[in-house]
Amino acid sequence: MEEREKTKNNTEMRILGFLCNWCSYGGADTAGVSRLKQPTDLRIIRIPCTGRMDPLFAFKALISGADGVLVSGCHPKDCHYSVGNLYARRRFEVLKDFLPFLGIESDRFHYTWVSASEGQRWQEVVTEFSRRIHELGRNPGFDMNTNLVNSEAR
């Protein structure tokens, strides 16, 4: 079991993280400053608020072959803009339910809430999500270079 875990972990996955500027980005920073050990598969993109997070960001990433998309923002009722994350959470729920319809595992998309002081929690979130993506393996996606319409003509 451990052996399998290890070989799987040898390849780095392509995981995108969308973190809100006010809470989770701070939380990730806290984790870093506290030198908490984290997996290295995640690439972080800072957004002003999870309310700015268009579900299409995640959708485009996943059909283009990203292995996972993690979104994190302020806890509900703690949003810097009061309600941005409350709008966002409805959108994320819809997206999560929608992805499997096209054949993409719903687990490849995850959203959560981490505040600026929760460095420890951030470490847990990243570790757990990375582990789950490693378990799922590579995302077959929809091959971005298959030129279907004119494949024969090219």
Binding site: P55, L56, F59, K60, I63, S64, R91, V94, L95, F98, L102, G141, F142, D143, M144, N145, T146, N147, L148, V149, N150
Partner: peptide, 25 residues
């Protein structure tokens, strides 16, 4: 630039994703 002009499946799917997600609800 969300969608390229390339007639690839990815671009087609992305367009339909845009259409569908903008109509959710």
């Amino acid at each position: 630039k969300w969608v390229t002009q390339k007639p690839t499946l990815k671009d087609i799917l992305l367009f339909h994703g845009i259409h569908a997600l903008h109509l959710a609800g």
